[in-house]
Design a binder for these strands. Sequence first.
DNA 1: GACCAGGTAGCAA
DNA 2: TTGCTACATGGT
Length: 295
Amino acid sequence: METGTIPLASLSGGLDLYRTLESGQSYLWRRADGEMYQSEPDPGTWYHTVVDDEVIRVRTLEDCLEWQSWTDAETQVRRLLRLDDDLEAIVATAPDDPLLREAYDAHRGMRLVADPPFGTLISFICSAQMRVSRIHTMVSTLAREYGTALEFDGETYHAFPTPEQLATATEDELRELGLGYRAPYVVRTAEMVANGEAHPAEARNLEYEAAREYLCQFVGVGDKVADCVLLFALDFDEAVPLDTWIKSAIEEYYPDCDGGSYATTSRAIRDRLGSEYAGYAQTYIFHHLRTGSGE
DNA sequence: GACCAGGTAGCAA
DNA sequence: TTGCTACATGGT
C-alpha cells in the first residue's frame, strides 16, 4: 500500500473535505463510518472511492490531506478533488454579490469535484425528484449490486459499475432496488454507452451549449442533469445547473435573470455569477441555501 | 396522510 | 417552442 500527504497550507483557498464530498455534487465517495449526510464526521474520518479499479482513501488531519491506495495516487487525488484549483483567486474575482459573498464566506474550502463521467451521469439521472441522501444510497446500491468488488487493506469496496456491467441490469431489478421510475432511464442509458452509441466523455470536446445538447440524448437526461455532468465531471466550470434551489434563488435574488426558458435563464444567470466560474458560484449557493446556513 | 425531493418524457395546443 | 401531467419512493 502506498500512502502520502499533501500539506493543506500548499492549497490555495484550503480544503474542506466534508463540504466537498457531502454537498451533493458527488455520489461516488463513501465515508468509513457510514454516516454520510447524517452528521459532520469526526476529525480524521476516511472517505473512499474507486477509480479505474483502484481504491483510494483520503482524510484530513490537522495540517494535511492524507491519501492511501495501492499505487501512488497523488495525481489522481489532486485531480478528483481539484486541489490545484486556485480557490483563493476564484473567490477573490467572483462578482461582488451579497448572496454569493455570504455563501463563499460560509463554506470556505469547499471545492468542486472532478468525478468519472459515467458514474456522474447515472448518479444525476437518479437524482430526479430525490433527496441528496437517497441519491447517495441509490448509487451505493448500484455499486454493491453490479460493481466490481475489490479487497483493500482487509476491507471490501465496490467500484461503480462499468456501462457493460450496468447494462446487464433489468428495469425490474432496478425497481426492486428502489430506483422507481428512473429504473428504465438507467438501463437504457447504460446500454447506449455500453454499445458505443454515445459516451458522456465525448461532450468534453464540444463547446458548452453543444455539450449540454449532446448529453441530453441520454435517456433521463434533460438540461439540468446535463449541466451537473458538465460541471462535476467534465470541467465545464461555467455550467450552472438550474435545480429547485437555484431557481428559488433566481426568484428571490436575481429575478431579472429569469428568461422563461432554461436556455435563456441559463445564459443570464451564468453571466450574473461570473461566467468562467459560474458553476463554482452555483455550487456554493446551492449548498448554502440547501443547508440553511444563512439563517 | 399530505407534502416534498439537485426533473424528465410524452403529449397537446 | 411552451405548458401540462405522470412518474416511485422514503422521510418528515
